[in-house]
Every structure is written in C-alpha cells, then in structure tokens.
C-alpha cells in the first residue's frame, strides 16, 4: 500500500512536470496554430542555464531559475520572430513544422558543441529534504511537493490570465479566428509573441523541476519529456489549458505505475499505447471539443 502511494505521489510529480510543458505546447498550438517541436529543447536550454549559474557559479537557485526564465523567454520570442513568423502564411503548414524540427536539432547540437555529450550532474534547486509520513513508511521528497504545488499555481495563474485580462481575451479571440480578431483591433503578432513568451518561460520552470528530480543533464534531456508532454496535451485535448493539466497528470501517473508494477522497459510503450486507445475512443482528447462541421 505504501509503495503504491509512493509511486502515485511520484507519478503526480512527474505528471506535474509534463503538465507544465504541455501547457506551453497547448497554448502555442491553440493560438499560433503550430506544433513547436523545439519546445522540449527549450527545457534543456533552461536546465543548462540553471546548471551554469547555480551548480557552476554557485548562484542562489532561485536567482538562477529567474535568469533561466528570462533567457528562455527571449529564446522563445526570438525563435518565433526569426524562424516561425516568416512562414506563418506559407502555402503549406508543413513548412513551419519542419522548421520547428530544425530548431530542435539546432539547439541540441549547439548544446553538444558547448557542453559536450557527457552527462552533467545537476544540483537540485530545492534543498528541502521533504516530509516523512506514517512513521517513516511514506517519504515524500521536497522537490516532489514543490513540483506539484508549482504546477497548480501555474494552472490557476494561466486560467485567471486567459479569462480575466485583456491580453488573455485577445489570445482566446486569436485562437478562434485570427482574421476576425484583427478586425476587433487585436494585434495578432503581439498576441502570438506573448504566447511564445509564456510557453518558453514555463519550459524554463519545467526544466528546473525536471533536472532537480532527475539530476542528469545532457543535450537530449528535453527531447523525451517534450514528446511525452505533447502526448499529454493531445490526450487532454490539444488547445485546452485544463486538458493539458489533466493529460500531464494522467500520463505521469500511468508512467510511474507501469514502471513500478509492470516493467520499466515497457513503461513508455504503455504510455503511447494508452494515447492510441484514447484517441480511437475520443479523437479530440479528454477535454477537447467535439469538432462539428458548421455551415
């Protein structure tokens, strides 16, 4: 029982990280109508930035995270401006997708060039050891608790931002009809830039939490979590903010439980198998809207 609870809490924590990444995926998809396949690599960039400032230069972890958030935000804005925006009205939507894959390889290889292929050991940004319950039979690490709380705070913040601010309303309008949004006086470019900024800032936060929970850092650190978060976003209903949260949590829990009770080799296969089954039963994902043809 205690081992189940331990796995469940760990799953919740991993799921929270997926959720934070998936939020970035889903917002960019919903508003800019593109899959930013480099999103996972923004996480890796965030990790290296924190690694340099915190593990190497000995800066306070919180300050290092703030620096990573700022730099990742700038990276997201620049990538959108330089690589994606010129292709926004391209004849084929594949153009920008392929560019995103290119950006992903570019960032991975750049990291390889600068930091080499060897694994760097990352110092957790949460020094707190955690709590021990039921007379020590249930140990919950500090980073696990912090991760779950941070993801909840981010979800609440995003929901308030989207539904209560002018910029959030602009995002909703752009996600539903870009042309009509422009006719309302909304600066579509600015709205998309803001979306990339938020998504990239979240990637930096996810990177800090991920590398603290799994403290080995390579240029490919972000790739697999990025793909799983994409799966989580699709599972929850791509474009939906609460959907990304639910999708992330479900995925994390399933992954850790499969690892513990079935097989650690098969865990990823199970995760992707579940995605396939869900999409067959509910093509729009858990919280996705039914797509109805309207005349």
């Amino acid at each position: 029982m205690m081992s189940f609870l331990t796995s469940f809490v760990n799953g919740l924590s991993l799921g929270s990280i997926y959720a934070i990444i998936a939020l970035g995926y889903t917002m960019v998809y919903g508003i800019a109508k593109m899959l930013n396949f480099a999103h996972g690599d923004f996480i890796m960039v965030g990790c290296y930035i924190i690694f340099i400032f915190s593990s190497n230069l000995g800066l306070n972890p919180v300050a290092a995270i703030l620096i990573a958030i700022v730099l990742c935000t700038l990276l997201g804005i620049t990538t959108e401006r330089v690589a994606y925006r010129p292709l926004r009205n391209a004849a084929s939507p594949l153009a920008v997708l392929i560019t995103a894959i290119g950006v992903s390889y570019f960032l991975e290889n750049l990291a390889l060039l600068i930091f080499g292929a060897d694994t760097k050991s990352f110092t957790s940004v949460v020094p707190w050891a955690g709590i021990s319950l039921f007379g020590g039979s249930l140990q919950i690490q500090g980073i696990t608790i912090v991760t779950i709380l941070v993801s909840l705070l981010i979800l609440i913040f995003l929901q308030l931002f989207v539904h209560k601010t002018r910029e959030g309303q602009a995002m909703l309008a752009v996600s539903q009809d870009r042309g009509a949004a422009m006719l309302m006086g909304i600066d579509v470019n600015k709205t998309i830039t803001l979306t990339f900024a938020i998504g990239s800032a979240l990637a930096a936060v996810a990177g800090a939490l991920l590398a603290s929970a799994y403290p080995s850092l390579t240029p490919y650190t972000g790739a697999m979590p990025g793909i799983k978060a994409f799966v989580a976003a699709v599972l929850g209903g791509i474009g939906s903010i609460p959907g990304a949260m639910i999708g992330g949590l479900v995925l994390g829990i399933i992954e850790i439980l499969s690892r513990t009770y079935i097989s650690s080799q098969l865990a990823d296969a199970i995760v992707f198998g579940i995605l396939v089954v869900v999409l067959i039963v509910r093509p729009t994902g858990i919280l996705g809207k039914n797509i109805q043809e309207k005349v």
């Binding site: 002018r166 309303q169 602009a170 909703l172 309008a173 539903q176 009809d177 042309g179 009509a180 949004a181 006719l183 309302m184 006086g185 909304i186 809207k289 309207k294």
Partner: peptide, 18 residues
C-alpha cells in the same frame, strides 16, 4: 465569423477591444 465559443456578450466586448 463570430467567436463561436464565446457568449453573445463576450463577442460584443471583443468588438470594443480598442
């Protein structure tokens, strides 16, 4: 091209965005 997921009132507010 009304914003299909928004209410009538939200659509009108979008019209006054500026």
């Amino acid at each position: 091209r009304v914003f299909a997921d928004m209410t009538v009132e939200e659509n009108l507010k979008m019209g006054a965005y500026t």
